[in-house]
Amino acid sequence: MGLRFLVDSMHGYVAKWLRIMGYDTLYLNSVNDEDIVQLALGDRVLVTSDEELAKIAEKRGVEVFLTKGLTEEEVLRLLVERFKLFFQEDSLRCTVCNGELEPLPPEEAEKNPEAPKNVDLLWRCKSCGKLYWRGSHWRNISRQILKLTGSEPSHA
């Protein structure tokens, strides 16, 4: 199993980009400290700006990335550096719900009223059904990933 993350509610931006890069990322929403530690325990890196929580979690054996005083951009850059993150072509995730994406067969895409025309490749979130495609926004995403990891995702 690859790296997995647990991101506190202060870092929605970081959570989104970790998911875009394909990492299983839970984003916390009003959860108490004890539950956060328990959720992270064993197999998730906790990303938080809460020093006290970080201390408690580290004592219990959770790997913690403390983000105090850093901007979201910096957090992301440092995370990539420290954990050698890269864009995982074969594991795409929904930025909204962390569900895995599956390619949508063309015949279903045609029937779907939400699907854009003249796009060859479509993905669908297995959990929430949201559709994804590489439209004009993809240019910005690949630019950001190039900036972060030093290599551009393939345009297949």
Partner: peptide, 17 residues
């Protein structure tokens, strides 16, 4: 895990969206 991290005790369940 989804339930606990999101803080929602009920999740709508989807099959093929």
């Amino acid at each position: 895990e989804t339930m606990v991290s999101s803080g929602h005790r009920r999740l709508p369940c989807l099959e093929k969206s």
